[in-house]
Amino acid sequence: MYAFKYTQVGSVDDAVKAAGSADDAKYVAGGMTLLPTMKQRLASPSDLIDLGGVSQIKGIRKDGNNIVIGAMTTHAEVASSPDVRSAIPALASLADGIGDPQVRNRGTIGGSVANADPAADYPAAVVGLGATVHTNKRTIGGDQFFTDMFETALEEGELITAISFPIPSKAAYTKFPNPASRYAIVGVMVAQAADGVRVAVTGAGPKVFRQGDMEAALKSNFTADAIKGVKVSADGLNADIHAGADYRAHLVGVMAGRAVSAC
């Protein structure tokens, strides 16, 4: 890891200010992605601004029909939160299936969403539950947030403060995990959300996407049988040593069917 300057801040304003006045700063949240990336020298920021002390963006609250989760809330906290478990059990179990206990004790929802790994779990929840991403300057709809592989709508220095999830009437998340890392080879969130049926797929393509044909089929008949006949094209899907594009396309159907049955 190349040398950098470390700064600890206590508020969102101070974090944004510190990042703005540095050469090439990065926020560090749980560090579970950023530090390994820096060790590999794939990232070499001049400054790390540690959000660990920014208590205003930590924690979970129920706000009307929404569960609002602060960006610095760890995966373990989401998984064990009574509010999340009772309002959106699918989200709690998604968080509980990320990596391993030590990753969950450090890794945060804000870091995961900002990082936009194509195989990460949370993007399926942000899109599949129709969430809203709150930043230090605006709100961004979940459907608009992820723009490409590791790319988001966030601007330079923009900081995620919280993510609010509208409580669905039903939802379930099913993933086919990579046996080593637990990242999703394919993960599907299915929900009966306030704005209709949502089917969001992570792991299969360069970024999370909605499966429109399945959403249409489920709208009139919310059963696993209703999507059995839906063809998923392998065009543009990821292919790597873990799974080819055809296999991923097949898994989208299987995972979506299981998620609907689990709803």
Partner: peptide, 27 residues
């Protein structure tokens, strides 16, 4: 491993188990 996967470096920080190869001393 030094790549956050093996858990040989697990210690407790403020009562929780973490991988000490993926946390800075200053943190």
């Amino acid at each position: 491993c030094d790549t956050s996967q093996c858990g040989a470096c697990v210690v407790h920080v403020n009562g929780k188990s973490i991988k000490s190869c993926t946390m800075l001393a200053v943190q």
